[in-house]
């Protein structure tokens, strides 16, 4: 992981990780350590981590079909008010070449029918101020922007 402080108030992080749930976990822990070393970014709430986790998990599970052999290139740029993230993978494209558009799950159902999944894209779309996706030759590129909040 390469972390670089830019202009005193922005942090750029670049890393590559294997497409495994453990690597996703470790990467997020490491990003947290880097943020903790750079006030005021140490005071960010966890929304950046939720959205980055959801996109990475989606790549692990769907673009690479849980094969655990893929590579993901991750770039995060934390500024004073926004985070920009870019995810590049070399796996399968999104169905129809576009981002899934989730519907709100129906929670007014018997306990046995409550949804156990499908929350990921809902969280991504709710949290991000902008998301774009492109499948280009052999790679998928997803970029998003998130407004940052501090811990309350």
């Amino acid at each position: 992981m390469k972390a670089q402080c830019l202009d005193g108030d922005r942090l750029s992080i670049r890393t590559s990780l294997r497409s495994t749930p453990d690597a996703v976990s470790e990467t997020l822990r490491e990003v947290r350590v880097r943020l903790n070393d750079m006030p005021p970014l140490d005071c960010l709430d966890s929304t950046w981590e939720v959205i980055v986790a959801e996109v990475l998990n989606n790549i692990v599970e769907h673009a690479y079909d849980d094969s655990h052999t893929g590579e993901i290139d991750l770039t995060l740029l934390f500024g004073p008010t926004t985070m920009n993230a870019e995810f590049i993978d070399y796996g399968r494209a999104m169905p129809n070449g576009t981002l899934p558009c989730p519907r709100d799950a129906d929670l007014d159902v018997p306990r046995a029918d409550l949804p156990e999944g499908g929350f990921g894209w809902m969280l991504i779309h709710t949290l991000a101020s902008h998301v774009e996706y492109r499948h280009d030759g052999g790679s998928n590129r997803l970029a998003l922007e998130l407004r940052l909040d501090t811990k309350s």
Partner: peptide, 18 residues
């Protein structure tokens, strides 16, 4: 101090086991 949608799904799944 951190949960993602998979963790949330696992808690819902546990609730459904009751």
């Amino acid at each position: 101090d951190f949960i993602d949608s998979s963790g949330l799904g696992a808690i819902v799944a546990a609730m459904k086991l009751m």
